[in-house]
Nucleic acid binder design. Structure first.
Lengths: 220, 220
DNA sequence: CAATAAAATTATCACACGATAAATAACTGG
DNA sequence: CCAGTTATTTATCGTGTGATAATTTTATTG
């Protein structure tokens, strides 16, 4: 729909540039593929990818044996780089309240993933093979939700060891899923307000803090 | 992947049946399209739809002017019938506590939509045009979330009139979105346990009841 | 039972797609 | 500045797709 026939200059059609290093060219192809696939899904054509990268379509096959391997390169580009190692430290910093730490984290995290490219590619990928979803589920659970439960326990003075049960993860999953769904809703309806986002995150954390306090005081 | 070359009987290939009423044939085509598109997305071919319906591909064009109109028929079939009018009464029955009413409702509702066909088609549709998503958002907000806020207010003895502000909808949206996300997670990972589902719904409603009580008592 | 309306099939078109082979042009080392 | 390497393009193949026209088959009815 928004892809056009490539008309860089109205007159001269010929593209002047050529002969990049293999690494640079490969990067450009993946860039173009990310952009296209985020719009159209993975059924976007290799010709359109090539057009986006400013090359001819057969050249693509010098860098990727087939379309599937290009798709895998797109996965790697978008999903693997979406976790910032600094976040682990943010979450573990016990000089601040849990709510404050996770507020900071979730604002940064959603800043990274609440973007059309990430959200749409993630959905397209989840629908086409369960592996990507399984990988994402694992990351969220181990890097975000389990730390949340453990840190909250510590804050409330309850020591149940390092293990986190599936039952304890349900509430965090509900809120994390709610935030993800919020991101999709904002993206589809076109609105994307950072202030409102911070408010929703705050409310989600409010709910968890209240719930966990209530739950743990009842268990005593 | 699971679509095969149609081999009803190993020997006799010819399909004996023909000549249905236009309404019946149309229904069969839409059925087949729903099944196929839920698997492959809307890029599933008209030939595979026809094969699933046991007819030849050009016949499809006697009932639908083009593929797009077939897709719209699929929307109508799957999404429009997904609301049971009896649910409105369930939600309004003030002889029961709000939590109990919405527990009953959400178990029935998720029973209807936590199915591969609904969830996958909904995601495919949301990704391909925002209109479907907008329609769904409206239904959820007006039929489920606003009633939830109003009924909860009444239960807590707070009267703020009929209007429900966007701010008040945030918490319900978080939990509803969390449930939707839970459905997707269960579907992708292959697990679908009705007991576990009821438990998650209960927990979501617990969280909302606790949160709304806390919020409204602070506002007083 | 022949005549007729229309449901269904056969045959086919034009085009877009993924992929391959051969030809060309740009950079590099001597 | 020439030769060799290789990045890039041109040309093309086979297949699958959405869609249309012409033909055949089925059921109904006078």
């Amino acid at each position: 729909m928004s892809i056009q026939k490539q008309r860089k200059t109205p007159e001269k059609e010929a593209a002047p540039r050529r002969r990049l290093s293999p690494e640079a060219r490969r990067d450009e192809i993946v860039d173009a593929a990310v952009t296209l696939f985020a719009e159209t899904g993975f059924d976007g054509s290799t010709r359109d990818v090539a057009r986006g990268a400013g090359i001819t379509q057969p050249l693509l096959y010098r860098y990727f044996p087939n379309k599937e391997s290009l798709i895998e390169a797109v996965y790697a580009r978008v999903f693997l780089k979406s976790w910032d190692p600094a976040w682990d430290e943010t979450l573990a910093d016990r000089s601040l309240p849990v709510q404050e730490r996770f507020q900071t984290f979730y604002e940064a995290y959603t800043d990274a993933i609440f973007q059309p490219v990430w959200l749409r590619l993630w959905h397209f990928a989840s629908l086409r093979d369960a592996e990507v979803y399984g990988w994402y589920k694992e990351v969220v659970q181990e890097q975000i939700l389990k730390p949340l439960v453990r840190e909250r326990r510590a804050e409330l003075g309850v020591n149940q060891g390092f293990q986190v049960s599936a039952a304890e993860l349900e509430a965090p999953w509900l809120l994390h899923g709610g935030l993800l769904n919020y991101g999709l809703r904002m993206q589809v309806t076109g609105r994307a307000d950072a202030n409102a986002r911070a408010g929703v995150i705050r409310q989600a954390l409010d709910m968890y803090m209240l719930f966990s306090q209530n739950k743990l005081s009842l268990d005593k």
